[in-house]
């Protein structure tokens, strides 16, 4: 198939940036979106043009590296997937595709479609851990009984891969789905109770310091989240936060 691509190009974090138009041919429906980008980059290299920078790593939908805002949606037109799992069969011959980087003040553009998501790392460092020693003297998992429902909820929250699609798609560029997943995965379990108070206070403070927006419960984040993290985690984080403050 033949496609018309409108892609954001930006030399570095200081430069202004703008859209460039590219036409690409011989794209097969079985290619992934990132493979289509590879083909385009190969073409650009042959033409002695700087290839388009974009993030990717595992290409199996589990690392959270790939980003891209495709035709107005984080990770493109499908729900619950990463960009590497988006296939060209979702597009038709002759389609125009607009490709932009994730846009948020807290995710500054490094180059072209690559954004700096280290704000998430700093939030994680501020409290997303447990101090219990888990190396060498690990106890049997059944020593401390945990309700099935709590274990399931903790596991669901822990599947967050920190890709930033929640921030990218939220009209307020809010990071509350990400932070709430990181708070919830520990708050459901006894191991997480030890630092529960400090965790939620520090992570929310870091989130605010990074300049993310406020959640208005539109639910867009859970729709676009490739791991299906539920918005109910946000209400849970709010509860944890009030408890810690009071």
């Amino acid at each position: 198939m033949k496609l018309n691509l409108k892609i954001w190009r930006q030399k570095n974090s200081e430069s202004k940036g703008g859209f460039e138009n590219y036409v690409i041919d011989n794209i097969t429906p079985d290619m992934s979106f990132l493979e289509m980008m590879d083909v385009l980059n190969q073409k650009l290299i042959y033409e002695n043009i700087d290839p388009i920078s974009f993030d990717h790593d595992c290409r199996e939908g589990i690392c959270g590296s790939c980003s891209l805002f495709i035709n107005g949606r984080a990770h493109g037109p499908d729900k619950g997937i990463t960009t590497c799992q988006l296939h060209m069969r979702k597009f038709k011959d002759g389609d125009s595709i607009v490709i932009e980087p994730f846009r948020a003040k807290s995710f500054p553009i490094i180059k072209d479609l690559v954004v700096d998501r280290s704000a998430f790392d700093r939030i994680q460092h501020s409290g997303g851990y447990i101090s219990i020693n888990t190396s060498g003297n690990t106890q049997d998992a059944n020593t401390t009984p945990i309700r099935k429902e709590d274990a399931d909820n903790a596991f669901d929250a822990a599947t967050c891969i920190g890709c930033g699609a929640c921030v990218a798609t939220c009209k307020n560029a809010s990071a509350m789905l990400y932070v709430s997943a990181k708070v919830s995965q520990f708050s459901y379990l006894p191991q997480g109770k030890v630092e529960a108070k400090e965790r939620v206070l520090n992570m929310v403070k870091q989130m605010d310091d990074e300049g993310f927006g406020n959640c208005t419960n539109t639910g867009a984040c859970e729709v676009e989240c490739p791991k299906g993290i539920s918005i109910k985690n946000i209400a849970r984080m709010n509860r944890e936060f009030y408890k810690a403050k009071i």
């Binding site: 607009v98 932009e100 846009r103 307020n172």
Partner: peptide, 8 residues
């Protein structure tokens, strides 16, 4: 918090 708006 959004900074620059999306084109689409």
């Amino acid at each position: 918090s959004r900074g620059a708006n999306y084109t689409r």
